[in-house]
């Protein structure tokens, strides 16, 4: 499934993550991540975003994420909310 409409969820604040979903012309998930803990946990955050999108059946999207140190449950919740708001679930 492709994301066809922009949407967002979460806040740019400590322990939260702001997710901005946009359509991607290519059939792939592209992630741009800014995080206060990117050095330590950047790969894990990207992995959680990709896994959540895959679980929801999203195969094409451009994701911009500003992370303030969110735990996995919060990342999953914000990604799911953004996908729902894009009207894809």
């Amino acid at each position: 499934m492709r994301i066809t409409k922009s949407s967002e969820a979460g806040k740019q604040e400590a322990n939260d993550i702001f997710i901005w979903l946009e359509p991607n012309e290519k059939e792939e998930i592209e992630i741009k991540l800014e995080s206060v803990v990117k050095l330590q946990f950047g790969k894990q955050i990207e992995k959680v975003i990709r896994e959540t999108l895959a679980k929801l059946g999203v195969t094409s999207a451009s994701v911009t994420a500003w992370d303030g140190g969110a735990l996995d449950y919060a990342i999953r919740a914000r990604v799911e909310t953004a996908v729902r708001r894009a009207g894809e679930v």
Partner: peptide
């Protein structure tokens, strides 16, 4: 409201 209920569901499930 939509975001909060997904967040609360996830935290109860995972923590």
């Amino acid at each position: 409201k939509d975001a909060a209920r997904v967040l609360v569901r996830n935290i109860l499930q995972e923590l």
